[in-house]
Computed example of a mutant assay.
Amino acid sequence: MKAIEITEPNAVRIIERPDPTPGPGEVLLQIDTVGYCGTDLSTFRGRNPLVTYPRVPGHEVAATVLGDGGEAGDWKAGESVLVFPYTECGACASCFAGRPNCCQHNQTLGVQRDGLLAEQAVVPHAKLMRAEGLSARELALVEPLTVGAHAAARGAVAEGEVVAVFGCGAIGLGAVAAAANLGATVVAIDVDDRKLSIAEACGAAISVNSSKDDLAARLSDATQDHGPSVVIEAVGLPETFRAAVELVSFAGRVVYVGYAKQPVEYETKWFVMKELDIRGSRNALAADFQSVIEMLRAGRVPTTEIVTHETTLADAPKALEDWSAAPGEVTKVHVRVAAS
């Protein structure tokens, strides 16, 4: 079978691998659609410290069950599924705390272990999820949207609050949609008017292009000078890390889901004076997946606008190269494997 391999930084190619065979407790999948993640882009650029090379990317997956190796539950051939891409050790502090999404020894598909950007794959049956009624495009969007939804959950977003979201990529859009679904007034912040338009379609009540508008003034107007109750940072820049702390309300919550690529210096008085809750957000829980599935079923997420580029397996290497060359033009790339 064919698969995509990031061989080393700035080198991606199609490779041939043996067809996989499921063992006991495993399910054989035909891969239908895989979304490229920002993590895959970082891997291609050589900027992902969690990755060793070569690496097959792919953890945003829509697939069809082909069969199993026995002892795999009630999965039937022909069922459409998505894949839960994380592992948990069950023996670290986070697992004991009931938060396996941040397992100390987690291995995400396509990051610490090979992913599923291939024609077929074998996965443990416990890592499959049903989402009846969703298309392949929607199934492949569940995971990235869920990472954003988990950030909203970490922020304990409540009805009536004002929530500001920095960054309107796929993860930020998931945070926007989830916070709006919880009844918050969402302020979407980006430097790209096209992405802000998508954020509005996801439920943002206010959009701010921070390269053109006075962000502090806009947030002040939206909150009667208090600042947003929750700020979710989904960009990963030192300036947005700092802005989250500076702009959030007193007694507010800041959630970091982006990764800053360099150390961040703060004016630490705001941590204490505002008595802030500053929370990290990593991956997602099964409950977050279910909430996003329900949002997609209800038509609350404009999937055709989020997926800005579609390609085939044969052209997947070039699509990754093109994304790296012009990242601002892309919100989400889907590789339609089954159509290749």
Score class of each variant (00 low, 15 high):
F44D: 01
C168A: 13
P124E: 10
A284G: 00
D221K: 10
I4K: 04
G69I: 11
E275K: 15
R47V: 00
E239L: 13
R17M: 11
K261Y: 01
Y256C: 02
E310W: 06
V83I: 08
S207V: 15
A91R: 13
V337H: 03
G174L: 07
F241A: 15
F96D: 13
S135F: 08
V257H: 04
E265N: 15
I293S: 05
S291R: 14
L41C: 04
A339K: 14
V191T: 15
L141K: 06
A338Q: 10
Y36E: 00
Y256T: 01
A151N: 12
L296W: 12
Y266I: 15
G236L: 13
P49C: 05
V111K: 00
L182C: 04
G73N: 06
A287D: 14
V176A: 07
T39E: 06
G133W: 13
P22L: 04
G46Y: 08
V163F: 12
L139Q: 09
S340K: 00
V27C: 08
V191L: 14
G169C: 07
I293V: 15
G167S: 07
P9K: 10
S249F: 00
S207G: 02
E265I: 14
Y86K: 00
E119D: 10
S249W: 00
C102N: 06
I171R: 01
A319W: 04
E5Q: 15
S324M: 01
V123K: 00
G73Y: 07
P327E: 06
A216M: 05
A184N: 09
G73Q: 04
R253W: 05
A338I: 05
A222H: 05
V27I: 11
L117T: 14
T33H: 14
A177N: 03
V230G: 11
D213F: 09
T64Q: 13
A72D: 05
Y86M: 11
N106K: 12
D190H: 07
Y86A: 08
A72P: 01
A217K: 15
M295L: 15
A338C: 02
I278H: 11
A243F: 09
Y259Q: 06
A319E: 01
C89F: 04
E233F: 13
V65E: 11
Q290T: 11
V51L: 05
R279T: 14
W323P: 03
A205W: 00
L313V: 10
L116T: 03
S207A: 14
I15R: 12
S249C: 14
A325F: 05
G167D: 09
P57H: 08
S324F: 10
V335L: 06
G252I: 11
V83G: 01
Y256S: 01
E239W: 13
L29P: 13
W270M: 12
A149V: 10
H309I: 05
C37P: 02
N101C: 01
T21C: 02
F271T: 13
S229Y: 07
V81R: 03
T240F: 11
R336I: 06
